[in-house]
């Protein structure tokens, strides 16, 4: 019951955050030089004052500010984010077509970073002066300092140009056609480099935190009890300690979500991955304001929903979190 209440509270809070994003979008739209009428006029090749007035009336731009804000929130709540004059499509349709590719990239790279990061972290906690500790420290330095697009380009040069194992760009090969399995394998092949690039930033973060929290947990009383019981080292670490050492790592992973989405934008640009980032890149080049703002809205939605899910996972694996509400 407590859990249900806490979840409802979190969902309510997430809705408020989303509302704030919508309001921010609206303000940016208003503060930016030029409005919808201007951009329509531009695609029409110019329009006189009369027509501009008509367009503004059509879009309700002559109404008072607060009315416009209310109407905008109402529209966005129904997922109506306007129309892209560049792509001649509703923004929502456009974005929904691109979201799966970005989600695939973001989720796969987070899972990879978490698994490898935790394994590395555990290894180096077991052996603080060993080689894995060194790897973790080096990764942490590299992960922080290397521009993600640069890492991507280096990997691209190494594994697509010099040693052509992986495809250079995109998500599918037009030539590959066949059963679902064949096509999935093709996507997987395209996915490898972008995922490795994106996870390189977070791998370092997670492994460092996992090492620290694992070392802390290993020093606690119940671990000594487990040792005294005569359990093997691996049993203690993977069955008893890991569960507790994991929750700060998952908390951090949740906090990193907005950084992951940001990183995905750059990685997509490097590998021409057909997701939100590439769309954002193209719509900024073509000054397609409704689409840009739509992407900001949907990517914030992804982060907010992701945070909500992280919170739920934490509550499920860590009973201490449930008690604290």
């Amino acid at each position: 019951m407590k859990l249900v209440f806490a979840v409802i509270q979190r969902v309510f809070y997430a809705a408020i955050l989303l509302l704030a994003v919508i309001v921010l979008n609206f303000f940016m739209m208003h503060l930016a030089p030029g409005d919808i009428a201007d951009s329509i006029a531009q695609t029409m090749g110019g329009a006189d004052e009369e027509i501009m007035k008509e367009i503004r009336a059509d879009y309700g731009l002559d109404k008072p500010f607060l009315t416009q804000l209310g109407q905008y929130i109402f529209k966005v709540a129904q997922f109506d984010l306007g129309y892209s004059y560049f792509y001649t499509q509703p923004v929502t349709t456009l974005i929904l077509a691109k979201i799966p590719a970005t989600l695939l990239l973001v989720i796969t790279s987070q899972i990879l970073a978490l698994i490898v990061g935790v394994l590395l972290g555990v290894q180096s906690a077991k052996n603080p002066n060993g080689i894995s500790s060194f790897v973790v420290s080096m990764l942490a330095l590299f992960g922080y300092a290397a521009p993600v697009f640069w890492t991507g380009i280096l990997l691209l040069i190494a594994f697509s140009l010099k040693i052509p194992i992986f495809p250079v760009a995109g998500m599918y090969d037009v030539m590959v056609e066949g059963s679902f399995f064949v096509e999935a394998l093709d996507v997987l092949k395209h996915l490898v480099l972008p995922v490795v690039t994106l996870s390189s930033i977070f791998l370092a973060l997670y492994s460092r935190l996992c090492r620290a929290s694992m070392m802390e947990v290993l020093g606690s009383d119940y671990i000594r009890t487990a040792k005294a019981k005569g359990l093997s080292r691996n049993e203690i670490i993977y069955k008893h300690a890991l569960k507790n050492a994991l929750s700060p790592v998952i908390t951090l992973a949740g906090l990193q979500l907005s950084a992951v989405v940001s990183g995905a934008v750059l990685v997509e640009a490097v590998y021409s991955w057909p997701g939100l980032g590439t769309l954002a890149f193209n719509s900024i080049l073509s000054r397609d304001t409704p689409t840009i703002l739509g992407i900001l809205f949907f990517s914030s939605l992804v982060v907010i929903v992701g945070n909500l899910l992280t919170d739920l996972v934490l509550r499920l694996i860590d009973p201490r979190m449930r008690g604290s509400e």
Binding site: S262, A280, R287, S300
Partner: peptide, 20 residues
């Protein structure tokens, strides 16, 4: 502060630079 943590930072700055 939490609101600004939720916004995907790079996209938000892209929007600012693109619009202004």
């Amino acid at each position: 502060t939490e609101f600004f943590q939720v916004l995907p930072t790079l996209l938000f700055s892209m929007v600012i630079v693109a619009l202004f």
